[in-house]
Amino acid sequence: MINASNSERMNQSSFFTRLPLWIAILAAAVGLTLEFTLLRGYASHWWNHVPAFYLLYGALAAIALLGLSIWGSKVLNRQEAAGTNEKEA
C-alpha cells in the first residue's frame, strides 16, 4: 500500500527543513557573543584582531573548497559503467 504522506511529512515539513538554518544562526550568534564578551582582548594569533574572523574564514574557506570541488568534479568525473551493481551479496 503506497503511503505518500510519510515521505511528504518528512520531506515537506517546514520545521524540519528550516531547523538547521535557525540552529546555524543561533550558533553564529553564540559564537559572536563569546568573541565580543569573554574573548574581548584575547589575541594569540594575528587573526584574533580581525572581528568575526572565524565566521568570515568559515564562509571564505567554504566558497574556496566548494568552488574547487565543483570545478574538479567536472574535470575528474567520468561516466559510470552501465550495469554496475552496488548491492552486496
Binding site: P20, L21, A24, I25, A27, A28, V30, G31, L32, L34, E35, L39, A52, Y54, L55, L56, Y57, G58, A59, L60, A61, A62, I63, L66
Partner: peptide, 16 residues
Amino acid sequence: IAESLLTLSGAFFIFI
C-alpha cells in the same frame, strides 16, 4: 567553542 561555532555556521550559510 567560539571558533567551532563560527566557522561551522559560516560554512553552513555558504552551503545553503
